[in-house]
Design a protein around this nucleic acid. Structure first.
Length: 489
RNA sequence: GGUCGCGUGGCCGAGUGGCUAGGCAGGGGUCUGCAAAACCUCGUACGGCGGUUCGAAUCCGCCCGCGACCUCCA
């Protein structure tokens, strides 16, 4: 019972917290909507990546065998709901005069690099939409056979009204179909559809369109909701446990995925829907179309007008984990710098814990600490509360290291193990790697040794000068009993 | 306009009927040659107005403000 009961997760479908029970324990199928690789990854991409990395890590920690599928969208998303827009990838490729797949490769590589910097584990399978055209065509055929789609001029559309007559279109997003129809704007290219709410499963390619594949309906490309349905079915089965993604995908993307799956197999594919909330900047959603986004590279390097300085990827990860994944999180220099100090404090405690000498008795309850962390994690991944318990442990660790608190050898071993486990294995944090080499270290130690000797001569003028000069270079010196410690900030 | 959500101390951010998370910043103190770090300590907040209740930041109603989705979006 050390893990504090069962994992509860908030299911967007029921709008309540539910106990998580996998379909086929100990296996868990997890599918998350990945990036569209036609631009650099920005802060917004980091949120779902970190959120579901946390889930992946925690489920694995609990002993589940997780197959985590996160797709790469490299084809098929259209520019407008009129279905007349160019394929996004294609548009960018023309702009830069290179091959579409070259754009895909370039930004996929960048994405992977950023994810590694954030210590986001690679998924078990990372399928690309362009590699699953046949599966998507088969899905279209199945929906056609079942009578929930129709063909028009080489395109195939999903018949939402027909679907809704038997099932419930809108159950995930709470949309009312009649309202949707009444509120739909009149747009070009709607003539082919029976109804404005219908969406493309397969889209005819115009002559200039480069990304195209042959099909029984003519040359074209898959509709923009189809890949997730096709690929999740292929790798996780017709019914699987968890589907995650940004809350902005809830409608229409995930609503349409539900409709596609039900129309194809008669079954609801997803048992638990999970949605992370948005990242905002100055209170407004960060987005490509709003032109207010900060890319991860800009953030890590400090290259952006809104940034006072660079922020280490671990600060970004820690900052995100200080808010619940279902809340919006607002970025500011002040907030990031506060997170950085807190993060450093936590990391220092990881070192300090090694210095604690065991005692006969414990003045602190290590078991309660561990229990509290698990309870918070099980409460819909409540990482802010987990972190608050880690800080409480930090205070104890610092105090015990100074001999003001005591802990038995047994408790100390448990504390050490779990403190590190929650920080590194579950929250996925890691020490900021020192930006200094062996030579730097030796030089600094040599200089500080000289300072130490000056101090012993009571030559405080020299000692202070050395400390001030090192401070200017970013080396923080701390005097401890009979010696010194330092860190590069 | 429709649907959904939010408004917590200087800032960030948990909590969701009684037991006043946590971090950052700030005040005071201990330690220190002085600092830094660490530790101790202080600050009693929940948009407004009503209502339910013995008791509400937490439930209900209305109002105000903000945001998301309804169009590509993480």
């Amino acid at each position: 019972m050390e893990n504090g009961g069962k994992l509860n997760i908030y299911n967007s479908l029921s709008r309540t917290r539910e106990v998580f029970e996998p379909l086929n324990p100990p296996h868990v199928g997890l599918y998350v909507c990945g990036p569209t690789v036609y631009g650099e990854a920005h802060l917004g991409h980091a949120r779902p990546a970190v959120t579901f990395d946390l889930l992946f890590r925690y489920l694995s920690h609990l002993g589940y065998k997780v197959r985590y599928v996160r797709n790469i969208t490299d084809v098929g998303h259209l520019e407008s709901d009129a279905d007349e827009g160019e394929d996004k990838i294609l548009k960018k490729a023309r702009l830069e005069q290179i091959e579409p797949m070259e754009v895909v490769q370039h930004y996929s590589n960048l994405y992977h690099k950023n994810m590694e910097q954030l210590n986001v584990l690679p998924p078990s399978i990372e399928p690309q939409a362009s590699g699953h055209i046949i599966e998507q065509q088969q899905l279209v055929e199945k929906i056609l056979e079942n009578g929930y789609a129709y063909e028009r001029n080489g395109s195939v559309y999903f018949d939402v009204m027909k679907y809704h007559s038997k099932y419930n279109y809108g159950k995930l997003s709470g949309r009312v179909l009649e309202d949707l129809i009444a509120n739909t704007r009149e747009l070009e290219g709607q003539q082919e559809k029976r109804n404005s709410v219908d969406f493309a499963l397969w889209k005819r390619a115009e002559p200039a369109h480069l990304m195209r594949w042959p099909s029984k309906w003519g040359e074209g490309f898959p509709g923009w909701h189809l890949e997730c349905s096709a690929m999740s079915t292929k790798y996780l089965g017709e019914v699987f446990d968890i589907h995650g993604g940004g809350i902005d995908l809830l409608f229409p993307h995930h609503e349409c995925e539900i409709a596609q799956s039900v129309a194809a197999s008669g079954k609801d594919a997803v048992r638990y829907w999970m949605h992370n909330n948005m990242v905002t900047i100055n209170g407004q959603k960060m987005g490509k179309s709003l032109h207010n986004f900060i890319t991860l590279n800009e953030l890590f390097e400090g290259r952006h007008d809104l940034l006072e300085r660079p922020y280490h990827p671990m600060i970004i990860r820690f900052f995100m984990l200080q808010a619940n994944y279902r809340s919006t999180i607002d970025f500011s220099n002040e907030a990031l710098q506060a997170a950085e100090k807190g993060f450093d404090r936590l990391m220092n405690a990881v070192e300090t814990i090694k210095k604690i000498e065991p005692a006969e008795t414990s003045s602190w309850d290590a078991g309660e600490f561990i229990q509290n962390c698990y309870t918070a994690m099980n409460d819909d991944l409540n990482t802010p509360v987990v972190i608050s318990h880690l800080f409480e442990a930090t205070r104890f660790i610092n105090s015990a290291a100074e001999g003001k608190d005591t802990i038995t050898a047994d408790d100390l071993a448990r504390l050490k193990e779990h403190f590190r486990m929650f920080i590194f294995d579950i929250l996925g944090l890691q020490q900021k790697e020192g930006r200094h080499g062996e030579l730097d270290e030796k030089l600094i130690n040599t200089i500080l040794q000289i300072r130490q000797e000056a101090k012993e001569r009571k030559d405080f003028e020299t000692a202070d000068k050395i400390r001030d000069e090192l401070q200017k270079l970013g080396v923080e010196v701390r005097d401890v009993k009979g010696g010194f410690e330092w860190d590069i900030k």
